[in-house]
C-alpha cells in the first residue's frame, strides 16, 4: 500500500465536465442538509399549531426569503444537471453533446430563476 496517494498532474480535464460535477456535488450536499432541517421543522405540526406557525413565520422574513431563493437555485440546478447526467449515461449521443447540454441547463436554469425570483420576492417583500 503506497504511503501517499499523490497523483502526478491532474487526473481530470477541467472545463465544463469537471465544474458541473463540482456544482452538482455541492448543491446535492446543501439540499440534503436543508432536508434534514425541513423534516424537523415540519414535525412541529405534531407539537402544536402555535409552535409550527411561530417557526414558519421566521421563514417569511426577507433574509430567509433570500435563503429560499438560494435553495431553489440549488435545487433547480441539481435537477436539470441531474437530467443531463442521466442523458449522458443512457442516451447514445449524450457524451457527444454533454457540453451543449450543460449550456442548455444553465440557460433553462436562468429562465426559471428569473421567473421564480420575481414571483417569490414579491411575496416576501410585497405587503
Amino acid at each position: 500500500m503506497p504511503k501517499t496517494l499523490s497523483p502526478t498532474g491532474t487526473l481530470y480535464r477541467g472545463r465544463e465536465g469537471q465544474w458541473s460535477w463540482v456544482a452538482h456535488r455541492i448543491t446535492g450536499v446543501v439540499i440534503f442538509f436543508f432536508l434534514l432541517v425541513h423534516v424537523l421543522d415540519t414535525s412541529l405540526v405534531r407539537v402544536s399549531p402555535e409552535a409550527y406557525d411561530a417557526v414558519i413565520a421566521s421563514y417569511k422574513n426577507p433574509i430567509m426569503g433570500l435563503g429560499e431563493l438560494g435553495l431553489v437555485a440549488a435545487i433547480v440546478f441539481h435537477a436539470f444537471n441531474g437530467i443531463r447526467v442521466i442523458l449522458v449515461d443512457f442516451w447514445k449521443k449524450g457524451p457527444k453533446y454533454h457540453r451543449q447540454m450543460l449550456w442548455s441547463v444553465v440557460g433553462l436554469w436562468a429562465v426559471v430563476m428569473i421567473a421564480f425570483s420575481i414571483r417569490h420576492l414579491s411575496h416576501v417583500f410585497g405587503g
Binding site: V45, P49, D53, I56, Y59, K60, G65, H120, V124
Partner: peptide, 8 residues
C-alpha cells in the same frame, strides 16, 4: 400566496 400563505 406563496410562502406567506403557509401555516398550520
Amino acid at each position: 400566496d406563496g410562502i406567506t400563505g403557509i401555516d398550520f
